[in-house]
């Protein structure tokens, strides 16, 4: 039975590693300028976690195989507890702190930098169970929000008052997040009702919408295409279906798209 356990544990460990080594399951291709650091961090971590995982499982299996016996004297691990503690503190400690330090660099690249002065500002609003996006229009200013005016029926999703607020007049509200490629985007995130999250796997961005606290992220894309935006913060019964698209276009396509959207407002 001990040998069966040993074989099973080792087979499970190797079997678990195969889909990783074969890259059967991988995140979709990155489309952001900050993503490569994250991806690099991911493979580093995978290598270190994978080695630790395989080593621990295999040694566990080998020891169970070898030491399930009735004969002989009780022995002891060479080096004893002190050696193992030292190994854990030095090897694992150095390993994880190195990971942490490099990971912090990737994180800092995204969150500790301010958006550039030419970043394009777009507001994203998350509500049960849809995303809406607002472009400031030619004046470059967002009109103020009036939550009491929000009305799904009249499609006033943000609660704009173009009759009284001149800045709101040229605001463009869309259901799709279209952005020009290679241009920095500063996404201002506003929650309408409960917590939501903005997750685009290809963009390597996940950020919660916090009711009462407007947060923002900024990013630059580098591949034209259409990518799914999904909500990852449980927001109610329609959570599974709360989606929108990130449409990365060339500057020319984007300009045309924006013009067309403006005419539909």
């Amino acid at each position: 039975m001990a040998k069966l356990f040993a074989v099973t544990v080792i087979l499970i460990a190797i079997g678990s590693a195969i889909p990783i080594l074969m890259h059967t399951f991988v995140p979709p291709v990155d489309i952001s300028t900050h993503g490569p650091l994250i991806d690099e961090q991911m493979s580093e971590t995978m290598a270190e976690a994978g080695i630790s995982f395989l080593a621990a499982q295999i040694i566990l299996g080998v020891f169970v195989w070898k030491f399930s016996r009735t004969q002989g004297r009780i022995g002891s691990f060479p080096g004893g507890a002190r050696g193992l503690v030292a190994a854990a503190v030095i090897l694992v400690g150095v390993e994880v702190f190195a990971l942490g330090a490099f990971g912090a660099r990737a994180w800092a690249g995204i969150y500790f930098t301010a958006p550039g002065p030419n970043a394009m500002r777009i507001q994203a609003q998350a509500g049960q169970f849809a995303f809406y996006f607002r472009y400031p229009g030619p004046d470059g200013k967002f009109g103020p929000l009036h939550p009491d005016l929000i009305n799904e029926g009249t499609q006033n999703f943000f609660g704009l008052d173009p009759d009284h607020d001149p800045e709101a007049k040229d605001d463009i509200v869309t259901a799709e997040l279209a952005v020009p490629v290679n241009r920095e985007i500063h996404l201002l995130m506003h929650a309408k009702d409960v917590g939501h999250s903005f997750f685009v796997r290809e963009l390597r961005i996940q950020q919660d919408f916090v009711p009462g606290l407007d947060v923002s992220v900024h990013f630059t894309t580098n591949k034209v295409g259409r990518y799914e935006i999904v909500c990852t913060q449980l927001c109610g019964l329609g959570h599974y279906n709360m989606k929108a698209y990130l449409n990365v276009m060339s500057q020319a396509d984007f300009d045309a798209w924006l013009k067309q959207q403006a005419s539909q407002q």
Binding site: F67, S68, G75, S76, F77, V89, G93, L99
Partner: peptide, 25 residues
């Protein structure tokens, strides 16, 4: 990340203690 260290110590002590044991299954 630091919590990895005591966790690893615990696991290594368990596995290391198997060495030289007379394990009953």
């Amino acid at each position: 990340l630091a919590i990895t260290i005591p966790s690893t110590i615990i696991v290594l002590i368990w596995i290391g203690s198997l060495y030289g044991a007379k394990l009953r299954i």
